[in-house]
Design a protein around this nucleic acid. Structure first.
Lengths: 112, 112
DNA sequence: CTAACGTACAACCAAATGGTTGTAGATCAG
DNA sequence: CTGATCTACAACCATTTGGTTGTACGTTAG
Protein backbone atom coordinates (compact mmCIF):
# COMPACT_ATOMS: atom_id res chain seq x y z
CA UNK A 1 0.00 0.00 0.00
CA UNK A 2 1.17 3.45 -0.82
CA UNK A 3 0.81 4.95 2.59
CA UNK A 4 1.99 2.04 4.67
CA UNK A 5 5.13 2.63 6.72
CA UNK A 6 5.95 0.01 9.30
CA UNK A 7 3.66 -2.79 10.38
CA UNK A 8 0.08 -2.03 11.33
CA UNK A 9 0.32 -3.23 14.94
CA UNK A 10 3.32 -0.94 15.47
CA UNK A 11 1.49 2.05 14.03
CA UNK A 12 -1.51 1.16 16.18
CA UNK A 13 0.70 1.40 19.24
CA UNK A 14 2.12 4.78 18.27
CA UNK A 15 -1.22 6.46 17.68
CA UNK A 16 -2.81 4.73 20.64
CA UNK A 17 0.04 6.02 22.79
CA UNK A 18 -0.48 9.55 21.52
CA UNK A 19 -4.23 9.44 22.16
CA UNK A 20 -3.85 10.49 25.80
CA UNK A 21 -3.02 13.98 26.97
CA UNK A 22 -0.87 12.83 29.89
CA UNK A 23 1.24 10.72 27.57
CA UNK A 24 1.53 13.54 25.05
CA UNK A 25 2.70 15.81 27.86
CA UNK A 26 5.32 13.25 28.84
CA UNK A 27 6.48 13.06 25.22
CA UNK A 28 6.87 16.83 25.00
CA UNK A 29 8.73 17.00 28.30
CA UNK A 30 11.22 14.24 27.60
CA UNK A 31 11.78 15.63 24.11
CA UNK A 32 14.01 18.31 25.59
CA UNK A 33 15.25 16.93 28.90
CA UNK A 34 15.62 13.78 30.93
CA UNK A 35 13.24 12.69 33.65
CA UNK A 36 13.19 9.80 36.04
CA UNK A 37 9.87 7.97 36.23
CA UNK A 38 9.26 9.38 39.69
CA UNK A 39 10.28 12.82 38.44
CA UNK A 40 7.55 12.54 35.84
CA UNK A 41 5.11 11.12 38.37
CA UNK A 42 5.50 14.20 40.57
CA UNK A 43 4.11 16.32 37.73
CA UNK A 44 0.70 14.68 37.53
CA UNK A 45 -2.25 14.24 39.86
CA UNK A 46 -2.20 10.49 39.71
CA UNK A 47 -0.37 7.61 41.33
CA UNK A 48 3.21 6.63 40.56
CA UNK A 49 1.96 3.32 39.18
CA UNK A 50 -0.34 5.10 36.74
CA UNK A 51 2.52 7.20 35.37
CA UNK A 52 4.66 4.09 35.24
CA UNK A 53 2.04 2.49 33.01
CA UNK A 54 1.90 5.54 30.76
CA UNK A 55 5.67 5.42 30.33
CA UNK A 56 5.44 1.72 29.53
CA UNK A 57 2.86 2.44 26.82
CA UNK A 58 5.15 5.09 25.32
CA UNK A 59 8.10 2.73 25.49
CA UNK A 60 6.22 -0.05 23.68
CA UNK A 61 5.37 2.51 20.99
CA UNK A 62 9.04 3.45 20.63
CA UNK A 63 8.23 7.02 21.61
CA UNK A 64 10.54 6.99 24.65
CA UNK A 65 13.40 4.88 25.94
CA UNK A 66 14.27 3.96 29.51
CA UNK A 67 17.75 3.52 30.87
CA UNK A 68 18.62 2.45 34.37
CA UNK A 69 20.84 4.85 36.27
CA UNK A 70 21.41 3.84 39.84
CA UNK A 71 18.02 3.25 41.38
CA UNK A 72 16.32 5.48 38.85
CA UNK A 73 15.02 4.81 35.37
CA UNK A 74 15.81 7.71 33.09
CA UNK A 75 13.19 8.40 30.44
CA UNK A 76 14.26 10.01 27.18
CA UNK A 77 12.44 10.89 24.01
CA UNK A 78 12.91 8.49 21.12
CA UNK A 79 12.68 9.82 17.63
CA UNK A 80 11.76 6.50 16.08
CA UNK A 81 8.08 6.26 16.96
CA UNK A 82 7.48 9.92 16.26
CA UNK A 83 9.04 9.59 12.82
CA UNK A 84 6.77 6.64 12.08
CA UNK A 85 3.66 8.61 12.86
CA UNK A 86 4.83 11.68 10.99
CA UNK A 87 5.70 9.80 7.84
CA UNK A 88 2.32 8.10 7.83
CA UNK A 89 0.48 11.39 8.18
CA UNK A 90 2.68 12.87 5.49
CA UNK A 91 1.58 10.00 3.27
CA UNK A 92 -2.07 10.86 3.86
CA UNK A 93 -1.31 14.48 3.17
CA UNK A 94 0.28 13.50 -0.14
CA UNK A 95 -2.77 11.44 -1.07
CA UNK A 96 -4.98 14.37 -0.19
CA UNK A 97 -3.05 16.79 -2.39
CA UNK A 98 -2.99 14.26 -5.19
CA UNK A 99 -6.77 14.19 -5.10
CA UNK A 100 -7.24 17.79 -6.23
CA UNK A 101 -6.10 17.35 -9.81
CA UNK A 102 -7.25 13.81 -10.26
CA UNK A 103 -9.62 13.05 -13.13
CA UNK A 104 -9.74 9.42 -12.04
CA UNK A 105 -11.46 10.68 -8.95
CA UNK A 106 -14.46 11.75 -10.97
CA UNK A 107 -14.53 8.50 -12.90
CA UNK A 108 -14.55 6.51 -9.69
CA UNK A 109 -17.41 8.35 -8.08
CA UNK A 110 -19.88 5.50 -8.44
CA UNK A 111 -17.36 2.75 -7.88
CA UNK A 112 -17.57 0.76 -4.65
CA UNK B 1 -2.55 31.70 14.11
CA UNK B 2 -2.87 29.80 10.88
CA UNK B 3 -3.56 26.36 12.23
CA UNK B 4 -5.77 25.73 15.22
CA UNK B 5 -4.00 23.14 17.31
CA UNK B 6 -7.22 22.12 19.01
CA UNK B 7 -8.17 21.18 22.55
CA UNK B 8 -6.78 18.08 24.22
CA UNK B 9 -10.00 16.08 23.95
CA UNK B 10 -10.13 16.82 20.21
CA UNK B 11 -6.55 15.68 19.75
CA UNK B 12 -7.35 12.57 21.78
CA UNK B 13 -10.10 11.75 19.30
CA UNK B 14 -7.86 12.22 16.26
CA UNK B 15 -5.09 9.96 17.50
CA UNK B 16 -7.53 7.45 18.92
CA UNK B 17 -9.25 7.36 15.53
CA UNK B 18 -5.94 6.73 13.78
CA UNK B 19 -4.99 3.92 16.18
CA UNK B 20 -6.87 1.29 14.20
CA UNK B 21 -5.74 -0.17 10.89
CA UNK B 22 -9.26 -0.46 9.46
CA UNK B 23 -9.89 3.22 10.15
CA UNK B 24 -6.52 4.20 8.70
CA UNK B 25 -7.38 2.23 5.59
CA UNK B 26 -10.69 4.07 5.33
CA UNK B 27 -8.87 7.39 5.68
CA UNK B 28 -6.47 6.54 2.89
CA UNK B 29 -9.27 5.37 0.60
CA UNK B 30 -11.53 8.37 1.06
CA UNK B 31 -8.55 10.68 0.71
CA UNK B 32 -8.65 10.17 -3.03
CA UNK B 33 -12.20 9.09 -3.84
CA UNK B 34 -15.72 8.97 -2.49
CA UNK B 35 -17.31 5.95 -0.89
CA UNK B 36 -20.73 5.21 0.48
CA UNK B 37 -20.74 3.59 3.91
CA UNK B 38 -21.92 0.31 2.42
CA UNK B 39 -19.30 0.65 -0.30
CA UNK B 40 -16.68 0.84 2.41
CA UNK B 41 -18.32 -2.00 4.34
CA UNK B 42 -17.96 -4.31 1.35
CA UNK B 43 -14.19 -3.95 1.59
CA UNK B 44 -13.76 -5.41 5.05
CA UNK B 45 -14.45 -8.74 6.68
CA UNK B 46 -16.78 -7.33 9.29
CA UNK B 47 -20.40 -6.33 9.59
CA UNK B 48 -21.89 -3.19 8.09
CA UNK B 49 -22.61 -1.90 11.59
CA UNK B 50 -18.96 -2.28 12.57
CA UNK B 51 -17.82 -0.22 9.59
CA UNK B 52 -20.54 2.29 10.34
CA UNK B 53 -19.08 2.70 13.81
CA UNK B 54 -15.57 3.14 12.42
CA UNK B 55 -16.82 5.88 10.11
CA UNK B 56 -18.57 7.54 13.06
CA UNK B 57 -15.30 7.54 15.02
CA UNK B 58 -13.52 9.14 12.08
CA UNK B 59 -16.28 11.70 11.70
CA UNK B 60 -16.13 12.69 15.37
CA UNK B 61 -12.38 13.16 14.92
CA UNK B 62 -12.98 15.43 11.92
CA UNK B 63 -11.04 13.04 9.71
CA UNK B 64 -13.96 12.41 7.35
CA UNK B 65 -17.29 14.02 6.55
CA UNK B 66 -20.57 12.38 5.60
CA UNK B 67 -23.11 13.79 3.19
CA UNK B 68 -26.44 12.26 2.36
CA UNK B 69 -27.04 11.57 -1.31
CA UNK B 70 -30.26 9.75 -2.01
CA UNK B 71 -30.36 6.76 0.27
CA UNK B 72 -26.59 6.68 0.57
CA UNK B 73 -24.21 8.48 2.86
CA UNK B 74 -21.14 9.61 0.97
CA UNK B 75 -17.92 9.58 3.00
CA UNK B 76 -15.15 11.99 2.08
CA UNK B 77 -11.78 12.76 3.57
CA UNK B 78 -11.61 15.89 5.71
CA UNK B 79 -8.36 17.73 5.93
CA UNK B 80 -9.12 19.32 9.27
CA UNK B 81 -8.38 16.45 11.65
CA UNK B 82 -5.36 15.36 9.68
CA UNK B 83 -3.91 18.85 9.86
CA UNK B 84 -4.43 18.88 13.63
CA UNK B 85 -2.44 15.71 14.12
CA UNK B 86 0.29 16.77 11.73
CA UNK B 87 0.80 20.15 13.34
CA UNK B 88 1.07 18.54 16.76
CA UNK B 89 3.65 16.03 15.60
CA UNK B 90 5.52 18.84 13.87
CA UNK B 91 5.58 20.62 17.22
CA UNK B 92 7.17 17.59 18.87
CA UNK B 93 9.65 17.40 16.05
CA UNK B 94 10.55 21.04 16.64
CA UNK B 95 11.02 20.39 20.36
CA UNK B 96 13.23 17.48 19.52
CA UNK B 97 15.44 19.60 17.30
CA UNK B 98 15.67 22.35 19.91
CA UNK B 99 17.00 19.89 22.40
CA UNK B 100 20.23 20.86 24.09
CA UNK B 101 23.13 18.43 24.00
CA UNK B 102 22.91 17.94 20.27
CA UNK B 103 25.85 15.52 20.13
CA UNK B 104 24.10 13.04 22.36
CA UNK B 105 21.05 13.57 20.21
CA UNK B 106 22.86 12.54 17.08
CA UNK B 107 24.28 9.48 18.77
CA UNK B 108 20.78 8.41 19.70
CA UNK B 109 19.60 8.83 16.14
CA UNK B 110 22.39 6.58 14.90
CA UNK B 111 21.10 3.81 17.10
CA UNK B 112 17.57 4.19 15.78
C1' DC C 1 -47.55 -0.83 -4.09
C1' DT C 2 -43.96 -3.93 -2.82
C1' DA C 3 -39.47 -5.49 -2.35
C1' DA C 4 -34.77 -4.60 -1.89
C1' DC C 5 -31.24 -1.48 -0.45
C1' DG C 6 -28.70 1.76 2.58
C1' DT C 7 -28.67 3.57 6.86
C1' DA C 8 -29.37 4.33 11.95
C1' DC C 9 -29.43 2.73 16.36
C1' DA C 10 -30.07 -0.19 20.44
C1' DA C 11 -28.64 -4.15 23.16
C1' DC C 12 -25.29 -7.16 24.17
C1' DC C 13 -20.50 -9.25 24.83
C1' DA C 14 -15.35 -9.87 25.34
C1' DA C 15 -11.26 -7.53 25.64
C1' DA C 16 -8.52 -3.49 26.37
C1' DT C 17 -7.74 0.92 28.89
C1' DG C 18 -6.78 3.95 32.70
C1' DG C 19 -6.91 4.25 37.13
C1' DT C 20 -6.30 2.41 42.06
C1' DT C 21 -3.90 -0.13 46.17
C1' DG C 22 -0.68 -3.30 47.93
C1' DT C 23 3.56 -5.97 48.03
C1' DA C 24 8.31 -6.70 47.12
C1' DG C 25 13.13 -5.97 45.38
C1' DA C 26 17.18 -2.72 44.52
C1' DT C 27 19.82 1.09 45.65
C1' DC C 28 21.34 5.16 48.08
C1' DA C 29 22.04 8.11 52.43
C1' DG C 30 23.29 8.31 57.22
C1' DC D 1 22.89 -2.03 59.23
C1' DT D 2 18.61 0.81 58.83
C1' DG D 3 15.52 3.54 56.66
C1' DA D 4 13.99 6.16 52.83
C1' DT D 5 13.59 6.16 47.82
C1' DC D 6 12.73 4.36 43.19
C1' DT D 7 11.01 0.91 40.60
C1' DA D 8 8.34 -3.32 39.21
C1' DC D 9 4.35 -5.82 39.12
C1' DA D 10 0.05 -8.09 40.52
C1' DA D 11 -4.82 -7.74 41.60
C1' DC D 12 -8.77 -5.29 41.22
C1' DC D 13 -12.37 -2.01 39.35
C1' DA D 14 -15.06 1.09 36.13
C1' DT D 15 -15.30 2.59 31.61
C1' DT D 16 -14.36 2.35 26.74
C1' DT D 17 -13.66 -0.15 22.55
C1' DG D 18 -14.57 -3.14 18.71
C1' DG D 19 -17.25 -6.42 17.38
C1' DT D 20 -21.92 -8.85 16.93
C1' DT D 21 -27.19 -9.32 15.96
C1' DG D 22 -31.69 -7.46 15.55
C1' DT D 23 -35.06 -3.90 14.58
C1' DA D 24 -36.76 0.13 12.28
C1' DC D 25 -37.08 3.62 8.76
C1' DG D 26 -36.31 6.35 4.48
C1' DT D 27 -35.30 5.74 -0.47
C1' DT D 28 -34.98 3.58 -4.89
C1' DA D 29 -36.28 -0.01 -8.35
C1' DG D 30 -39.69 -2.98 -10.58
Amino acid sequence: MVVDQGSAPDIDKVFQALADSTRRDIVSRVATSEFSVSGLASLYAMSFAAVQKHVAVLERASLVTKEKRGREQIVRGNHEGLAKARSLLDGYEALWRQRAGLIVDLLNEKQA
